[in-house]
């Protein structure tokens, strides 16, 4: 086993493009750290605008993650456990936001929940105004993050299979009991990583938010929007805020990775 090739199981020349790829991803992160104005770092982060943006981002990302769970877990269950023939088409459509440019998502949301949109007109009559509100940010984030949760949970459900559920049923467990005591515990790792991915995606949401929700400090201007705006006047400040987002993302991925290897 001294030959590294036999241990890795891949030809050695693969290492070169693999390293290039890793460098391509990692180098920009290094560049951000290198460009960060450490002297002004504290001052930049503690500015009112930064704090508002960070706090708003955390709040909205948490809210949309919860919304993703409420809507996404049932969706994943239906997709993974039904044999309805048109479900394949439904799945592709539901997962569309995964591949859609977020701006397109924002435009679509605008024509749905906007003042003159499909649902917006009715909602307007009912006195519900979504546009330009924090709720609009949550909707935009949920729209783009939901597929991440559904995809990873559905995969986990399919891997787990239905055999444990069948056994539970023969033991006298009703469907709700099976869901609570068997299905969800079995797919917990998938659920956790799906939730983390959805949170990360919500946190980074930019295109749909700026298109649909607008941009106002403390209400709709999340961290990514603040970074983009900050570039206009204060490039260094934008870099400092970017670093915050990178750190949060690294933490989130780290937590997800740890959960996955632990379970």
């Amino acid at each position: 086993m001294s030959d590294p090739r036999s241990r890795l199981g891949v030809p050695r020349w693969i290492l070169l493009p693999a390293l290039l790829g890793a460098g391509f991803v990692l180098l920009p992160l290094v560049a951000i750290v290198a460009r960060t104005p450490w002297g002004r770092f504290g001052e930049l982060l503690t500015s009112q605008a930064s704090q508002d943006a960070l706090w708003l981002s955390l709040r909205t990302a948490t809210a949309s993650t919860l919304l993703c769970l409420v809507l996404g877990v049932p969706m994943a269950l239906v997709l993974a456990r039904s044999s309805y023939r048109l479900l394949g088409v439904v799945r592709s459509l539901v997962l569309l936001p995964l591949v859609l440019p977020p701006v397109v998502g924002g435009i679509a949301l605008l024509y749905t929940f906007g003042r003159r949109g499909l649902l917006g007109q009715t909602m307007e009559v009912l006195g519900i105004q979504v546009a330009f509100s924090t709720a609009a940010v949550v909707l935009a984030q949920t729209f783009v993050a939901l597929p991440f949760l559904v995809v990873s949970l559905e995969g986990a459900l399919r891997t787990a299979g239905e055999r444990y559920e069948a056994v539970a049923a023969t033991l006298g467990a009703r469907p709700t009991t099976v869901l609570r005591r068997v299905t969800l515990p079995l797919v917990l790792p998938g659920l956790v990583s799906g939730t983390v991915l959805a949170f990360a995606r919500a946190l980074g949401e930019f295109g749909a938010t700026i298109t649909f929700a607008g941009s106002l400090q403390g209400r709709t201007r999340t961290l990514p929007l603040e970074i983009y705006l900050r570039r206009e006047t204060d490039a260094e400040g934008a870099v400092a805020l970017s670093l915050v987002l990178v750190v949060v993302a690294v933490l989130v991925i780290g937590v997800a990775g740890q959960r996955r290897s632990a379970l």
């Binding site: 906007g114 003042r115 546009a131 700026i210 106002l216």
Partner: peptide, 19 residues
């Protein structure tokens, strides 16, 4: 304002859509 946009196009888009 209900929103402070990044670009003129964003302002125009929100007005032309009636938002």
């Amino acid at each position: 304002p209900v929103s402070e946009e990044q670009k003129v196009t964003d302002v125009l888009a929100k007005v032309s859509s009636g938002e």
